[in-house]
Design a protein around this nucleic acid. Structure first.
Length: 420
DNA sequence: TCTGGGGTCCTAGGACCC
DNA sequence: TCTGGGGTCCTAGGACCC
């Protein structure tokens, strides 16, 4: 048995946690660069504010003066997420952290101690006690069914935020009430195609033949159907598998038109990507850079391009990554565009041990590279100060917009809330 | 004026091998 | 006239997730 536990309106709840005056009011969090709505309090939802809606479009709506808006504060959300996960880890056999605000919990053996829904309430109460955040809990035989149960726990107040789907009849009743697009793994495209085949509810999907699903779609959807039937196809992944790619990309606060600005941005992204790579204890051989103008600007020529390089030897030295990223940038930069976004992608990873020197590589690996990178990472993680490579510059005129950012309540001494 | 930032998996098709 | 039957690896693109 699995439980899926997730925090209600996670980002928004993190914000109101430290602003009790805003509880019960419409609150939203917008994406990086203050672009789109990405989290809404219940009150904001009932105003009709949609997920993913561009912020500038609702800015001047009649209700907007009543809505409290926050820029994304990932330092805050990541810290609170960790506290939620720690609480769940402490009381359950094992968990898989699935995203910043949700986890699958392994419930094996729990049934010998107490009814599963009681355990669900216990998780909910413990998380609330430790963090002040409210979670929803869905319990079932497979991950996909647990997701469905969680969905129901959110939707119907009478459930008290916990739904146990162990009972097959209850399962079928819920399947009949759920439309296919609310099933985990069924997105917009597939649900449209399913609808055209007369498959509208999750129950329709469960009752359709596996052969037909496999023929018209693929093995992924077949697995979803099996999971909805109670056949476990997806395991609990307690330990995150090694990443296959690392991307660092951002939209710019203002459009970039100067090469020197773009060069700075690419250096900054390359540096951040290298940090992530080292924290994964990996070395990469593939470094790619992309940039693009706005796809929404009708009166401008759209330009998007990407270039990549293969390093002769796998590396996680920031200097190597910056070198090859800026080399690629030179090849795709075109004057005269108003660039909106750019990024750096790393791939083709090697673990420490298998990094092998290239027979024909003239340049020997950099001396003391590992020690230097470790020193930099330690300085930057110590809270004592920040060092960076000169390429990214000091005045980052291209940096993203975060005009409504809340304090780093839990991760910066100066921002600690004061209790009176 | 203004539209996020990450990821994964699968499939089809091309190039190549014997 | 007539052209097999296996494979592998790589890439691009499409679908999905949060």
């Amino acid at each position: 048995m699995f439980a899926l536990v997730d925090v209600n309106s996670f980002y928004t709840s993190c914000e109101t946690l430290f602003r009790p005056d805003l509880q019960g009011k419409p609150v939203v969090v917008v994406s990086n660069n203050d672009g789109c709505i990405i989290s809404r309090s219940a009150e904001a939802k009932s105003l009709g504010i949609k997920m993913g809606e561009p912020f500038f479009k609702i800015k001047n709506n009649t209700y907007s003066s009543r809505v409290h808006i926050f820029s994304s504060n990932y330092a805050l959300y990541a810290d609170l997420s960790e506290r939620v996960m720690q609480t769940l880890t402490a009381i359950s056999p094992s968990i898989e952290v699935y995203s910043i605000d949700e986890a699958f919990v392994n419930l094996s053996g729990v049934i010998n101690c107490m009814p599963l829904s009681d355990f669900g309430h216990e998780m909910k109460n413990k998380v609330f006690k430790n963090t002040g955040l409210t979670v929803g809990v869905g319990i079932a035989q497979t991950k996909t069914l647990a997701k469905l149960a969680n969905h129901a726990a959110k939707k119907w107040r009478g459930t008290g935020g916990v739904v146990d789907l162990s009972n097959i009849e209850r399962q079928h009743r819920l399947l009949a009430l759920t439309s296919v697009e609310d099933v985990w793994g069924v997105g917009r495209r597939i649900s449209k195609k399913l609808n055209s085949m007369g498959i509208n509810t999750a129950l329709d999907l469960v009752e359709s033949s596996l052969w037909v699903i496999r023929k018209h779609f693929n093995v992924v959807l077949e697995r979803t159907v099996r999971e909805l039937r109670g056949e476990q196809c997806l395991e609990l992944e307690e330990f995150a598998p090694a990443k296959q790619q690392i991307i660092c990309s951002r939209s710019f606060g203002n459009r970039i038109t100067q090469y020197s600005d773009m060069h700075q941005a690419i250096c900054a992204y390359a540096e951040r990507a290298s940090e992530k790579l080292r924290s994964e204890r990996q070395f990469c051989r593939f470094v790619s850079v992309f940039l693009r103008t706005s796809p929404h600007a009708d009166n401008e020529v759209y330009y998007a391009n990407q270039a990549s390089m293969k390093l002769l030897t796998p590396s996680n030295d920031t200097r190597d990554i910056i070198n090859s990223a800026t080399n690629s940038l030179k090849r795709i930069w075109v004057d005269g565009h108003r660039y909106m976004k750019a990024g750096v992608m790393l791939a083709d990873f090697f673990s420490n041990g298998v990094a092998q020197l290239n027979l024909f590589d003239d340049s020997s690996p950099r001396k003391n590279s590992a020690a230097l990178m470790e020193a930099i990472d330690q300085l930057n993680n110590s809270g004592k100060g920040k060092v960076w490579f000169a390429g990214q510059g000091i005045e980052k005129t291209w940096a993203m917009k975060r005009e409504m950012l809340s304090p780093a309540y839990t991760t910066r001494y100066a921002d600690l809330p004061v209790a009176r």
